[in-house]
Every structure is written in structure tokens, then in C-alpha cells.
């Protein structure tokens, strides 16, 4: 039971990381109709900038703020310089162009910071673990990550549902032409949304930095899952991103944790282990397929 609870928390924490990535991506996809494969690059750049600032200043907060600011500015610059050209192109061209950006960013961080992964430790205040239940120790930092995810979810909910900007975003995701016709500065809106997406990706990157290896190409492993999340959640919907992220995080984690044991009930040792490993790695794609059969436009579809 304790193990199950712990795995549930692990799944939730993983889901939060996915949510931070997916919320930005789904907005960009939903509102601008742009497939941005380079979203993972903002995640990576966030982690690298934070690691570099923490290494030189020793302050995690400074690293966090610096990374968010730098990545948001970079995001807006990339939107203005590159993506504006791509809005009218079809998805294949967008994929090619943004894939190019991935390659460029991966090599660029190697040129700037070298080929070895960077050192990025947990801030002292968040190191160690707390006893949530008797026998259930959980790392403080991961609890912090879950907390940040909840705060961001509330912030996005308020932003989208209670502000003028949010109204424009919602309108933009259901009918782009109409909102432009009504006189909303769509270019500015696009830049802001894109910057926000980049900032959220960087936030995920900064929180991943102490847990994961800060290295070139770190964005790609999370990017694929992020796409699964927004497909499950429904393109353009923040609510969907949240639901999809938690679902994928929990299913993936529990699958990896318990699938081999379930298999062992039916099969013998070695076969069960490899069968379990294989099944748990396709579990989220099965989940996606099932969701798409019953709700072809995802759990929450923004354009309705």
C-alpha cells in the first residue's frame, strides 16, 4: 500500500512536469495552429541557463528567475523571427523547420557549455525528504515540484478564464479569423502566448535540472510524451493538458512499477521481466489509442 501511494506520488510529480510542457505546447498548437517540435528546446535551454547561473552565483532563485526571463525573451524572439513565417505554411513544413531548430539548439548548447552534462544540484532548502505517512518518506524537492504544478494550474485557470488576455486566447483557439476581425492585435497575442509557453517549458526544465542530467538533447525525451498528453487532452485545451498530463504521468509510472510484477503472475522470471518492460513502455500509447477511439478529438476539445 505504501509502495502504491509512493508510486502514485511519483506519477503525479511526473504528470506535473508534463503539464508544464503540455500547457504551452497546446496553446501554441491550438491558437496558432503551429506544430512546434522545438518546444523541448526551451525546456533544455531553461535547464542550462539555470544550471549556469546557479553554478556561478550559488543561488537557485536567481537561476530560476534568470532562466524564465531568458527563455521567455528567446521564445518571443524566435516567434517573431522564425515562426511568423511558418503560420501560413502546412504542418509538414512547420515540422521540418522546428526540427531544424532542435538540431540547432542541441549543437548550440554544446558549443556554449561543452559536451559534458552540467552539474545542477537541489537547492539546500529543498534537499532531504519528509515523512508523509509512517514509512513513506518522499523527497522534498519532488513535493515542491507538485506544489509548483498546482500553483501554475491555478494561475493558468485564472489567466484564461478571468482576464481579458485569457478571453482573447480562448477566442483565438476557437476562431482565429473572427478574433482578428474584431480588432484584437493577433500578432501581439501570438507573441505573448508563445513567450508564455516558452516560459512554462523553461520552468519545467529548471525543475527537471536537479533531478535529471542537464545535457544536450534532454528535451526530446519529454517532448514525445508531451505530444501524447495534448492529443489525449484535446488540442488547445489547458484543462485537457492538465487531465492528460496527470493521466499519462500516473499510468506510465504505475505501469513501469507494477507491470513486471503482474506479468510474473502469468510468466516465469526472465520472460516476465522483459514482457513487463515491453508492455509498460507501450502502455501510454495504448491509453492514447483508447481515448482516441471514444473521443477522437481528445478528452477536452477547445474548438467546441
Amino acid at each position: 500500500m505504501i509502495l502504491f501511494l509512493e508510486q502514485l506520488l511519483n506519477g503525479l510529480q511526473f504528470g506535473v512536469m508534463l503539464f508544464l510542457m503540455a500547457s504551452g505546447l497546446t496553446l501554441v498548437f491550438g491558437i496558432m495552429n503551429l506544430v512546434n517540435l522545438a518546444h523541448g528546446s526551451f525546456y533544455m535551454i531553461g535547464a542550462f541557463v539555470a544550471a549556469a547561473i546557479v553554478a556561478s552565483s550559488g543561488s537557485f532563485v536567481l537561476g530560476l528567475l534568470g532562466a524564465l526571463l531568458a527563455t521567455a525573451i528567446l521564445g518571443i524572439a524566435v516567434e517573431m523571427l522564425i515562426f511568423r513565417v511558418l503560420y501560413k505554411r502546412d504542418h509538414l513544413e512547420q515540422i521540418l523547420a522546428t526540427f531544424g531548430i532542435i538540431l540547432f539548439c542541441n549543437e548550440a548548447v554544446q558549443v556554449i557549455w561543452g559536451k559534458t552534462p552540467l552539474f545542477f544540484d537541489i537547492p539546500a532548502a529543498l534537499s532531504g525528504s519528509v515523512e508523509l505517512l509512517p514509512g513513506l518518506n518522499y523527497p522534498l524537492f519532488r513535493i515542491g515540484v507538485i506544489g509548483v504544478g498546482i500553483v501554475v494550474a491555478i494561475f493558468l485557470y485564472l489567466l484564461i478564464n478571468r482576464t481579458r488576455l485569457g478571453m482573447a486566447i480562448r477566442a483565438g483557439s476557437s476562431d482565429r479569423e473572427m478574433i482578428a476581425a474584431l480588432g484584437v492585435n493577433i500578432k501581439l497575442l501570438y507573441s505573448l502566448v508563445f513567450g508564455l509557453g516558452a516560459l512554462l517549458a523553461a520552468l519545467a526544465g529548471v525543475m527537471a535540472g536537479p533531478i535529471l542530467s542537464v545535457e544536450s538533447g534532454m528535451g526530446e525525451s519529454i517532448l514525445i510524451l508531451t505530444f501524447v498528453v495534448i492529443v489525449i487532452g484535446g488540442i488547445g485545451s489547458i484543462k485537457g493538458a492538465l487531465a492528460g498530463a496527470v493521466l499519462v504521468g500516473v499510468v506510465d509510472t504505475l505501469g513501469r512499477a507494477f507491470m513486471p510484477e503482474l506479468m510474473r503472475m502469468a510468466l516465469s522470471g526472465g520472460a516476465a521481466d522483459s514482457m513487463g518492460a515491453a508492455l509498460s513502455s507501450i502502455l501510454i500509447y495504448l491509453l492514447m489509442a483508447v481515448v482516441l477511439i471514444f473521443r477522437p478529438r481528445g478528452l477536452f476539445n477547445a474548438s467546441h
Binding site: 509502495l3 508510486q7 511519483n10 535529471l212 509510472t253 512499477a257
Partner: peptide, 10 residues
């Protein structure tokens, strides 16, 4: 491509 090992560590 797995990067999070929390489940495994538990």
C-alpha cells in the same frame, strides 16, 4: 529514453 527513475527507486 527514460529519464525519471522514481518508480524504480521505490
Amino acid at each position: 529514453d527514460q529519464s525519471d527513475y522514481a518508480a524504480l527507486i521505490s
